Simulated assay, not measured.
Amino acid sequence: MNTAEEVVLDVEGLRMRYGTTDVLREVTFRARRGEVLALLGPNGAGKTTTIEILEGFRMRSAGRVSVLGADPAHATEDWRARIGVVLQSWRDHGKWRVREVLAHLGAFYAGYTTERVPRPWDADELIAAVGLTGHADKKIRMLSGGQRRRLDVAIGLVGRPELLFLDEPTAGLDPQARREFHELVRGLAGSRETTILLTTHDLDEAEKLAGRIVILDGGRIIADGTAEELARRITGEDEVRWTLDGQRFTRSTRDSTALVFDLFERHGRRIGELEVRRSSLEDTYLALVRQAEGAAR
C-alpha cells in the first residue's frame, strides 16, 4: 500500500462561515489508516462543525476535504457504507431488542460488502465485542445507561467502517465498561483496518487512546502532534518530588531520569517518597488554550 492510499482524512484550508462569522479558519490536518486521532477543543471551538463536514452532513464554505478518497459533499452511498458514526445519543424504538436492531441495521450494509471488507458485522459477534452478550434479547428501553452506550457503539460499528467517528463515546460508562471500550478501540486501530476520529472532553481518555492530538480553538488548529510532543513543546519540564532526611524537595527538570540517577548516586537509600510527575495532556491542553485566548485578545 502506498503512502497516498494510506491517507484516510486529508483536510486543507477548511473554512466555514455563517454570515460574517468565521467558525473554521484554514483548518488543515491528515489522518492515516489505522490511526486514532483525537480532535480536542473548548466548547465553540469548531469541533462539531468540522466533524459534520467530514461526515458529509454540512457543506463547507471553502477548502479541500478528502475522506476515504472522496469529497464528502458529493459522496455516494458506497462511500457512506464505509464510515461509522457514534453520536453522543441515538434515539430509537425502545421496544426493539438488542440483537434485532443490530441485525436490522446491518442488513442495509449487505450490498456493500467487498473482498477486503465483509459487511455487515455479524450481530452476535458484534454484541460480544461490545460486552452485551448477556443482554442480546433485552428490549432497548430496559438497558442501563452504560449498556445503552455500548449499543450506541455497536450501531456505529455494524457496517465494519473503515473510518469511525466517535463523539464522547464513553459518556455514561462506568470505569470497567470504559476500560473494555478502550480495549475495543485499540483492537480496531491495531488491526489497521479502522481509522478513528475521536472527540472527547475526557483528556485522560484522549491521552490513552489517541496516537495524535489535534487541538482546535477559535476555529483554528493551535496544536497537532502526539501528547508527548505537545507536552515537550509547551510545558517542557517534569516535576520531581522526594524526601531527604525528613525534608521535602521539589524540582522541575527537562531530564528527570538524570536527576533521579544523580539523587540516588549521591544519597542512596536516604532518598524517600520519590515521585516523577510528567506533564499530562491536561496540563498541555490548558496551556495551549490559555496561550491562544491570550493572543486573541
Rank of each mutant, 00 (worst) to 15 (best):
M1D: 12
M1H: 13
M1C: 09
N2C: 03
N2Q: 07
A4S: 14
A4M: 12
E5L: 11
E5A: 11
E6K: 08
V8R: 08
E12F: 07
L14Y: 04
L14T: 09
L14R: 06
L14M: 14
R15V: 13
R15M: 13
M16N: 10
M16C: 15
M16S: 11
R17D: 12
Y18F: 15
G19H: 03
G19Q: 01
G19A: 01
G19S: 07
T20M: 08
D22I: 08
V23Y: 02
L24S: 03
R25L: 03
E26M: 11
T28G: 01
T28D: 06
F29P: 06
F29H: 15
A31L: 05
R33G: 07
R33Q: 15
G34Y: 12
G34I: 08
E35C: 04
V36Q: 03
V36E: 02
A38F: 08
L39N: 09
T48N: 08
T49D: 06
T50Y: 00
E52A: 01
E52C: 01
I53Q: 00
I53G: 01
L54D: 06
G56M: 02
R60V: 08
S61Y: 15
S61P: 08
A62L: 14
A62P: 12
A62I: 06
A62H: 09
G63T: 02
V65C: 00
V65P: 00
V65H: 06
S66Q: 13
V67S: 04
V67Y: 01
V67M: 03
L68V: 03
G69L: 00
D71M: 05
D71G: 02
D71A: 01
D71H: 05
A73V: 11
H74M: 13
H74L: 14
H74G: 05
H74F: 15
A75T: 00
A75E: 00
D78P: 08
D78Q: 14
D78G: 13
R82D: 06
R82M: 07
G84T: 10
G84V: 04
G84Y: 11
V85R: 08
V86P: 03
V86K: 03
L87M: 13
L87Q: 11
L87I: 06
L87D: 10
S89L: 06
W90A: 15
W90M: 15
H93T: 13
H93C: 13
G94L: 03
K95A: 14
K95H: 15
W96P: 01
V98N: 01
R99Q: 05
R99D: 12
E100C: 13
E100N: 04
L102T: 04
H104K: 15
L105G: 05
G106W: 02
G106E: 08
A110V: 05
A110P: 05
G111M: 00
Y112I: 07
T113G: 14
T114C: 11
E115Y: 10
R116F: 05
R116G: 09
V117D: 04
R119L: 08
R119H: 10
P120H: 10
D122W: 03
A123R: 01
A123I: 00
E125H: 12
L126Q: 01
I127G: 02
A128P: 02
A129M: 02
A129H: 04
V130K: 08
G131I: 01
G131M: 03
L132K: 05
L132M: 09
T133V: 13
T133W: 12
G134L: 14
H135I: 06
D137L: 07
D137M: 02
